[in-house]
Design a protein around this nucleic acid. Structure first.
Length: 275
DNA sequence: AGATCTACCTGGTTGC
DNA sequence: TGCAACCAGGTAGATC
C-alpha cells in the first residue's frame, strides 16, 4: 500500500532509468486504468520524452515533453493499494500489467495493479491545477514547519487519525504511517484533535517527519504487494511498532496492543503508551 | 463539520 | 480438498 515513502522510493528508483527517455509505445491492457480513453492515451504519450520524475502526496508524476510544438503533458499515477510501477529485467506482459510503456532504451516500464484501483491520468501542465483531487491536497508533511503543522489540527473536532489520513489536511500519509506516528507521539488515534495539547501536536510533527524519513531511508515498507522500481522490497516493515501488530506486546511497555476501527480503518495502539 | 456506509477490486487467509 | 466468508485499504460519493 504505497504511501509517501513508497512513492518517493519508486520515484527515486525510476528516475535514472526513465528520465530523458522517449516513450516509443504504450499498450493499455485495462481501459479503466487510464484516462482519457486508451486510444487517446496511447496516441498522446507515444513519442514524448520523459523529462522529470516527481512525487506529490501519493502521486507519482512523469513530466512529458512537448511534441509537435504543443504544451507537454503530465502523467499522474495513483497506485492506491496494489499499484506498482517498475522496470522488469525481461520485457514481458504479466498477468496484472495494466499499462506497458516501451522506452527508447529498449526497457519497459510496467504499471501493474492487481485490484485495479490505481490509475494513470493525463493532464496539460496548466490543467492539473483544476483537477479536484490535486487542488484539494494539503501540504507535504516533510516540508511543513512545526507551527504550520500544529495549525492544521488546532480547533478541529475530528479525530486526529482521521485528519492525518485526510489528504486535504496533510498529503501523503496512509494507515501505516498514521498509526506509527501516533504511537511514537503517544497519542491515541481516536482523540479529537482539539483535545490534544499544543506541545503534543508539536511532538507529532517531529514523529511524522521522523517516521517518513526513516522509511524513505529504508526504501519504504513492503507488505504484500509493494515493490520499488526495480522490483525490490523495502525494509521499513521491520521497524513497525504497531501497524499489523495487534495482539502482540508493545515494544515500549509490553502491554498487549489493541485493535480498533478509527475513521473506518484498522488501527493499532497501546492503551498505556498512548493517551 | 464530521462520521459512517458503500462502491470499486482481487487474492490471500481463515474457518468449517 | 473445497468453498464461502472475510479482510486489506485510498478515494469518491451519498446520507445523516
Amino acid at each position: 500500500m504505497p504511501e509517501l515513502p513508497e512513492v518517493e522510493t519508486i520515484a527515486c528508483g525510476l528516475r535514472p532509468e526513465v528520465a530523458g527517455r522517449i516513450i516509443t509505445s504504450a499498450q493499455v491492457h485495462w481501459p479503466g486504468s487510464v484516462r482519457p480513453s486508451p486510444e487517446r492515451f496511447t496516441a498522446v504519450v507515444t513519442g514524448r520524452r520523459i523529462e522529470q520524475v516527481r512525487r506529490r502526496a501519493k502521486l507519482l508524476l512523469l513530466d512529458l515533453g512537448p511534441l509537435n510544438g504543443d504544451s507537454g503533458r503530465i502523467m499522474a499515477f495513483h497506485l492506491k493499494m496494489t499499484g506498482r510501477l517498475y522496470l522488469p529485467d525481461e520485457p514481458d506482459v504479466h498477468k496484472h500489467s495494466r499499462i506497458v510503456f516501451t522506452l527508447d532504451s529498449g526497457r519497459q516500464l510496467h504499471f501493474e495493479d492487481v485490484r485495479k484501483f490505481g490509475y494513470c491520468r493525463l493532464f496539460h501542465p496548466d490543467e492539473i491545477e483544476h483537477w479536484d483531487f490535486w487542488a484539494s491536497l494539503g501540504p507535504e508533511p516533510l516540508e511543513i514547519d512545526e507551527a504550520r503543522f500544529v495549525s492544521l489540527f488546532e480547533g478541529r473536532n475530528a479525530r486526529i487519525k482521521s485528519l492525518l489520513l485526510n489528504q486535504a489536511v496533510i498529503a501523503g500519509i496512509g494507515n501505516i504511517y498514521a498509526d506509527e506516528s501516533l504511537f511514537r507521539a503517544g497519542i491515541r488515534p481516536e482523540t479529537p484533535a482539539s483535545k490534544i495539547p499544543r506541545r503534543k501536536l508539536a511532538r507529532l510533527h517531529g514523529e511524522v517527519q521522523a517516521v517518513l524519513s526513516e522509511s524513505i531511508r529504508e526504501c519504504g515498507s513492503s507488505i504484500r504487494d509493494y515493490r520499488d522500481a526495480r522490483g525490490n522490497a523495502g525494509a521499513f516493515q521491520n521497524s513497525f511498532r504497531v501497524y499489523g501488530r495487534g495482539g502482540e506486546a508493545c515494544v515500549t511497555c509490553g502491554r498487549t496492543l489493541e485493535v480498533a476501527k478509527v475513521a473506518g480503518r484498522t488501527s493499532v495502539f497501546c492503551r498505556k503508551c498512548q493517551k
